[in-house]
């Protein structure tokens, strides 16, 4: 059981790290602010979600679990808000605005 959980952690965190890598590559390579934000949300949402999910079996129930979930929710909330603000600013000041 513990082996299966460890395998699950390794797999989930690795996939999460892959999404972070993909998001960062997109951030560096994409041509304009809106597509760059689009790339970043992949890292934020999928990457962080997978990393947190992978770490859940490794922490103590219930405090550790709740802490991880709280971190996940707060990062989601902050990331989403900042993306919205940046996207609107970019659209206002963008070349085709």
């Amino acid at each position: 059981m513990s082996l299966a959980l460890n395998l699950f952690t390794i797999l989930s965190v690795s996939i999460g790290a892959f999404f972070f890598l993909a998001g960062t590559v997109g951030l560096l390579r994409f041509p304009d602010p809106l597509t760059r934000l689009h790339a970043l949300t992949k890292a934020d949402n999928l990457g962080l979600g997978l990393v947190v999910m992978g770490l859940l079996p490794q922490v103590q129930w219930p405090l550790g679990t709740m802490k991880l979930l709280a971190v996940w929710l707060f990062v989601l909330l902050a990331g989403t808000t900042v993306s919205q603000l940046m996207a609107r600013a970019a659209r206002r000041e963008g070349p085709d605005a």
Binding site: F74, L77, A78, T80, T81, Q84, L85, R88
Partner: peptide, 11 residues
Amino acid sequence: DGALTLLAQVL
């Protein structure tokens, strides 16, 4: 801005 208002209400 709706997003900022929501954050300022929730956080």
